[in-house]
Measured scan of single mutants.
Amino acid sequence: MPSETPQAEVGPTGCPHRSGPHSAKGSLEKGSPEDKEAKEPLWIRPDAPSRCTWQLGRPASESPHHHTAPAKSPKILPDILKKIGDTPMVRINKIGKKFGLKCELLAKCEFFNAGGSVKDRISLRMIEDAERDGTLKPGDTIIEPTSGNTGIGLALAAAVRGYRCIIVMPEKMSSEKVDVLRALGAEIVRTPTNARFDSPESHVGVAWRLKNEIPNSHILDQYRNASNPLAHYDTTADEILQQCDGKLDMLVASVGTGGTITGIARKLKEKCPGCRIIGVDPEGSILAEPEELNQTEQTTYEVEGIGYDFIPTVLDRTVVDKWFKSNDEEAFTFARMLIAQEGLLCGGSAGSTVAVAVKAAQELQEGQRCVVILPDSVRNYMTKFLSDRWMLQKGFLKEEDLTEKKPWWWHLRVQELGLSAPLTVLPTITCGHTIEILREKGFDQAPVVDEAGVILGMVTLGNMLSSLLAGKVQPSDQVGKVIYKQFKQIRLTDTLGRLSHILEMDHFALVV
């Protein structure tokens, strides 16, 4: 994948999101292997301009796509893939009243899908469409860049269908997702969380590099694949309309690839034109409109599966009536509230959605109805927002919020430890010299600072030695090549209790 991002070429006709291997024109390309080798690009942008032909009021008969309808489940399912879809609609009884809503608040519980998330729908649909058009064949390999849930859905379907599955996901995604993927037989590649989507090191860039190296491999490409919004247009939206008897006044959905909100909203605009569509985008993402909503100094966020630093091709923002931004604290607070007060075992993005819903639905009156999409299960986040310690460490809970008995030293300040200034190293000294210094002084790690004293990161003896043994660096290389740029900081005025929580999850903390 090139470091400079080429513009994806656009073909003359058809839909841009065809499933299957992508040609340089962004659509299915038939021909000899030699032709494909000559024409197939190194990668295709996940934010390529959409060429979708959908228009409100256009006859369904003019759609270029294969459409399906929700099917009634048999008493005995032939395999677990038949437990994807037909998820329950559940009334939220307490939270709406707590925040003064007059309307009825309903939750579409997508964590009841077989793999635990709304992404099971698009995973199965992308595979079925690729099999139907002859792209996927027995023994082929599926590769997908994902925040985890699409990966789980694909790995689940691949396990049943017999495909090899490789999932490329950023490091910030939970260990629970990784464990589930491994249990399903998927191979996992992790990428830096802070890598831009168009960087060769991003999950998108690495996935395309693997595709170019592995024979008979395919990126189904949830960011561009029409099967993504079509899955929701054909099934999720129809289920909502049936469950609500066609009567709903507002739908609120958090947005990642945009397939969920695009597919549902398009069908609702056709069948229930008075329904307002509300999009939820986390602070630090750029999906919301108008652009002024996205202006923030924050560039990272903890909530998973929603928000991006690019506009995915499948996201149709014209069908969203209003956007709201959400933050991590309210997302996790509301997710825990949904679990504790409503018994809905949902993930953090569901918290984002409901946090926005109780604001947006203030305009609705008694007798009206708001539906929220709860995308995934708490299963993926047992060591994250479900953990009091994690919430404390991230600053989303305060010590006084917890009532468990603490040891005698818990409320003492870090400054009472009488710490001395640490050994520091410059980023320009060599790895070999740094190892000598650390061994001589008896230290395992040291902060790396520039000549102005600005902290650049941390270097550890173990990481340097393993990097040297693996051949990633040489003793003569500058130590700046092996620094940890993500590390926890703590102030002298913070409590030892807070430091204790940090050290339970990290090997060190830097006192500043």
Rank of each mutant, 00 (worst) to 15 (best):
P2F: 11
P2M: 13
E4S: 11
T5A: 01
T5I: 15
T5Y: 12
P6A: 08
Q7N: 15
Q7C: 14
V10K: 14
G11S: 14
T13W: 01
C15F: 14
C15Y: 09
C15L: 09
P16I: 15
P16C: 01
H17G: 14
R18G: 10
P21I: 04
P21F: 04
K25G: 07
K25W: 03
S27I: 15
S27N: 14
S32Y: 09
D35F: 01
E37V: 12
A38R: 09
E40M: 01
L42W: 01
P49G: 01
S50P: 08
Q55F: 01
R58G: 06
S61D: 05
E62N: 14
E62C: 13
S63F: 12
S63E: 08
H65S: 01
H65E: 01
H67I: 09
H67K: 12
H67D: 01
T68P: 11
T68S: 10
P70M: 15
P70A: 13
A71G: 15
K72L: 14
P74Y: 01
I76S: 09
I80E: 05
L81V: 07
K83T: 09
K83P: 08
G85I: 05
G85V: 15
P88S: 11
P88C: 08
R91W: 03
R91L: 05
I92L: 05
I92C: 07
N93S: 12
N93L: 14
N93H: 06
K94I: 01
I95S: 04
G96F: 03
G96S: 15
K97Y: 06
K97V: 07
G100H: 01
G100L: 04
K102P: 04
K102R: 14
C103E: 05
C103L: 04
C103V: 09
E104V: 15
L105Y: 04
L105Q: 03
L106S: 04
L106V: 09
K108G: 05
K108S: 04
K108P: 01
C109A: 15
F111G: 06
F112H: 01
N113C: 09
N113E: 05
A114S: 14
G115V: 06
G116D: 11
S117G: 05
R121M: 04
I122W: 01
I122T: 06
I122V: 04
L124I: 07
R125P: 13
I127C: 04
A130S: 09
A130Q: 01
A130I: 01
A130M: 01
L136E: 05
L136S: 01
K137A: 07
P138T: 12
P138F: 10
G139A: 03
P145N: 01
T150Y: 04
I152G: 04
G153R: 05
A155K: 01
A155W: 01
A158I: 05
A159I: 01
A159R: 14
V160A: 09
V160K: 01
G162S: 08
R164L: 07
I167S: 08
M169W: 07
M169P: 15
E171H: 14
M173E: 01
S174H: 03
S175W: 08
S175I: 14
S175P: 05
L181F: 06
A183D: 01
A183V: 06
L184I: 13
E187L: 07
V189W: 08
T191I: 01
P192A: 01
P192F: 07
N194G: 01
A195F: 01
A195C: 13
R196E: 01
P200N: 07
P200F: 07
E201I: 01
H203V: 03
G205A: 01
G205H: 05
V206T: 05
V206S: 08
A207K: 01
W208A: 14
W208S: 05
R209V: 08
R209Y: 09
L210Y: 01
L210N: 05
K211Y: 06
K211W: 07
E213I: 08
E213R: 15
I214G: 05
I214W: 06
I214F: 07
P215T: 09
P215A: 07
N216R: 01
H218G: 01
H218I: 10
I219V: 08
L220I: 01
D221Q: 05
Q222P: 08
Y223I: 01
N225C: 01
N225S: 08
N225L: 01
A226I: 12
S227Y: 15
P229Y: 10
A231F: 07
Y233G: 03
Y233P: 01
Y233H: 09
T236F: 11
T236N: 14
D238L: 01
I240F: 07
I240C: 01
L241E: 01
D245G: 14
D245T: 06
G246D: 10
L248A: 06
L248V: 13
M250G: 01
M250E: 01
L251N: 07
L251Y: 07
S254A: 04
G256W: 01
G256E: 04
T257E: 05
G259A: 06
T260V: 07
T260C: 10
I261N: 03
I261V: 13
I261G: 04
T262N: 09
T262R: 01
G263T: 04
I264N: 12
A265C: 03
R266E: 06
K267Y: 06
E270F: 09
K271H: 14
C272N: 01
C272H: 15
P273I: 06
P273R: 08
R276Q: 01
